[in-house]
Simulated scan of single mutants.
Amino acid sequence: MKGTLWCLHGAVGMAADWRGLSVPGWSVKRVDLWRFLDCCPMTMPEFGLALNREAESGNRETPGKRVLVAYSMGARLALHALLEGGPWDAAVLIGPHPGLESEEERAARRASDAEWASLALSGKWAGFLRKWEDQAVLQRSPDGEGGMADRAGLSVRRREVARSFIDWSLGAQQPLWSRLGEISCPVLWEAGELDPKFRALAERATPLIPNAELWVAPGAGHRLPWDGPAAFREKLGEFLERLGS
């Protein structure tokens, strides 16, 4: 076994979103992010430290390389893990946001996310999910194959989902742009061709990381691992092969 892929899901996501991912020679650890919020609040830097401790402990049981594979909110959390000096040999970051750069933007995002938190906690779950999925950024590409897990059962985690909109809001995140150069491991930063906002962020971020590569997934939107899973797996496999050579 070459190592373990530590897979982090996105906002209103599930560890099971990664159930279709397999790479020959690698084990896949699908991380349930909600368990980090099931007892008390946790900041993003605190999450980074907690995940790093878990990865360091886990390596004694499953030796080999440790690679973060993280999507959207999970990729923002992965950035904090990388910047907290984690034991990572590489990272695949899919559509992360390094941070809003003005307090006005952050305050507006915190207010917006507080509304999402309220709806997730006390509104009808089905209505919350419909509103969430209706966001333009989450629309599948015309040829998208889907494959994400059914969110209906996530209602048992609605308290943790609501808390994530507060603790892990983009508005609560300090901008990381000036710190990206601290990331020394190889990074594959991915964005969908049909996701202009996060493609622009990726194009700005990757030159700031010493050992980073940008991949723009053809025909994919923000949810690129599920818009084009075959292309995603192929690119991931190529990256991991170079990591091992």
Rank of each mutant, 00 (worst) to 15 (best):
E101K: 08
P218V: 13
Q174E: 12
S184F: 05
P225W: 05
G127H: 06
K124S: 14
P196V: 13
F128C: 02
A205H: 02
H222S: 07
W226G: 01
A114P: 00
A231R: 06
V161I: 15
S164W: 03
G99S: 06
R223S: 05
W168M: 12
I94K: 03
A230Y: 13
L93W: 03
S122W: 11
G99A: 03
G192Y: 00
E203W: 06
S164H: 06
P210L: 08
S112N: 08
M148E: 01
R233H: 12
L214V: 09
A231N: 14
A200P: 09
P229F: 14
A230S: 15
R159V: 07
P96S: 11
V161K: 04
P218K: 09
G144K: 07
F165H: 05
I183E: 00
G181E: 12
S184R: 15
S184H: 12
R199L: 02
G219D: 07
W132P: 08
V216A: 03
D143W: 13
G123A: 09
G171I: 07
M148Y: 04
G147S: 14
I183C: 00
A149D: 11
L176K: 00
E234L: 15
A117R: 00
K131T: 13
L188I: 05
W177F: 03
S118I: 01
E133C: 09
G144R: 05
G99F: 06
I209A: 00
E203T: 14
G99N: 08
S184I: 13
S141A: 14
E133R: 09
R223D: 01
W125H: 11
A136H: 09
R109G: 05
W189Y: 11
E133M: 03
